[in-house]
Design a protein around this nucleic acid. Sequence first.
DNA 1: ACTCTTTTCGCAAACGTTTGAAATAAGCTG
DNA 2: CAGCTTATTTCAAACGTTTGCGAAAAGAGT
Lengths: 339, 339
Amino acid sequence: MRGHQVTIKDIAKILHISPSTVSRALKDHPDINPQTKKNVQELAKKLHYKPNQIALNLLQKESKLIGVIVPEIIHYFFSTVISGIEKIANESGYHIIIAQSNESYHKEVENIQALLSSNIDGFIITMAKTTLNFDHFKNVEEIGVPMVFVDRACDKITADKVLVDDFDGAYKATKHLIENGCKNIIHLAGPQNLDIGIQRKEGFLAALNDSNISIGDYSIQICDTHDHALKLIPEILSRHNNIDGIFAVNDLTAIGAMKAVKSINKKVPDDIAISGFTNSYISYIADPELTTVDQKGFEMGQHAARMLLKRMQSDENYGPVTTILNTDLIVRKSSLKKK
Amino acid sequence: MRGHQVTIKDIAKILHISPSTVSRALKDHPDINPQTKKNVQELAKKLHYKPNQIALNLLQKESKLIGVIVPEIIHYFFSTVISGIEKIANESGYHIIIAQSNESYHKEVENIQALLSSNIDGFIITMAKTTLNFDHFKNVEEIGVPMVFVDRACDKITADKVLVDDFDGAYKATKHLIENGCKNIIHLAGPQNLDIGIQRKEGFLAALNDSNISIGDYSIQICDTHDHALKLIPEILSRHNNIDGIFAVNDLTAIGAMKAVKSINKKVPDDIAISGFTNSYISYIADPELTTVDQKGFEMGQHAARMLLKRMQSDENYGPVTTILNTDLIVRKSSLKKK
DNA sequence: ACTCTTTTCGCAAACGTTTGAAATAAGCTG
DNA sequence: CAGCTTATTTCAAACGTTTGCGAAAAGAGT
């Protein structure tokens, strides 16, 4: 179906010269007669000659492609990460192939295999939540394809990593709630098998500790989805009527909590102040606008891409680098009590 | 830096046989001695042999890559489209390269050129809002690379298209508002140089017409962002106090309007009912949850990928196909007045 | 007229794989 | 044992491009 692409051979045949001469003429090699050069270049332009990247890739053993594997691109955070990667990659003539794991270990393995055989030059990966076995990463490591982990890292693998200071972000958000008058804050926590779940919880606890606020047995609730928060919050509030602050592990959960609070006729932030984590655009869309911790997806993506490019271009095998980015607390109305 | 990938030649050398024998042994060719087959296959497995896709691509003159160009993946709609494409593409052994135009004509042209020279097998494209010149698409057409447009089409180019019935979706949403007691609805419309802007407006007008509702000079407002709605709505409501319904061209704008309405102490939906368009997840996150028109991004993506695959695999050059998908009205609380 | 240099070009190999055709060796038939 | 079949393997070309090296031709110097 596809029309025959013009090749160097075609040009060579027409001009009755050899392919090598055409190749050199096209790249202005000094060995070539100016007249020949002119002939070749003119014909190439006329025929819309485009070098065949596949052939070049085969020759140079590189594809100028970066494989990006993320759980789900519909999540704001991951799409900003991707945008950051794309920007830096494009600047260096690379393109990105995107594959989604949908948080499935199985799909992740499959994607890695598939992209490996596409001769990807490097990987940027955010692990799936369900990934507990790391053989597929080990495999990548053995083959020698450079790899950078973003946001969710894996201890078992020696690879570059870009993380965000989850502990500090959680600490800042919690501290902020306390400073705004909250005396009884609960944390809606993420899964405790993931580092981000642990770190954000620890940051929360540290902030309470530093302010000498006692921690109840209900202070930590494992709850990291909008719908779960919607159900859980009214239940908890009915049992602990004096809760006046909520720090959620992500924005969606925070907003679920916000809706729940409003549904039982409590006011946000005056009765209960709320902070999320991520700074996705729904935090801005929420009513009242949501205080949150900026997770800097775009910067993380850019950083990851730069690390990968450096690794790919370097000959020496320097040790793995881990970069931890700072978070910013974004204060909006959901946490500012009038008092 | 990259470790040597195991090739057929390596296996051949180790086993002291020829590459062709190895190749055939790996694909269970009947000509090969069972013992040889076994040796080869075992060694291949042991060495983690993976066929080099680039070499295959060169041989078969295809890259098994589909170029996807969308305005911005952070938008829920586009990320669902991409997911749909990815699913179908993967099923047929294809991968997708994603490039964003950021709604910029310039970036769009650049992306097309770059992906073309990567020997993409086909394109799936949603035009940028600012694209008014179509030479780059013409170019793709001439070269003979198949191309499918999604959501936003271009009349000047003969290519397959997947659209959504914007008119009907808008009609249904408006009709629904009317049936729920709205007597004075305004439409926050998209840019009128884009087909979706026009169609949704026309659907809105048709529904009003069919219900014999008169149309004021203020009934159509060009306004398609959250922030714009936030400013515009209080202003309009102060001038036209009897407005009791808003149909917005997209969910974000609808939610901006919703926040504005609430900010001047009117109730949604009782005072003013609201409907959006897209059915992004923010419509579910909104408070009250937003009635909207499901634009079926995932289905559109799947459909586009199928059309592209069909086109790529077909030898004959059948005329361009346009598929128009139906929309679904998703009724939620924002439009259900009590009475 | 001889060698030496310069200019310009082509040959051939390489990248990893597939595949039609040819080659080899062994076994079988009559 | 000549001729034939069958089983198994290798050769060589092909995909499009690059590149080291050699070759041819022309000019320069002695």
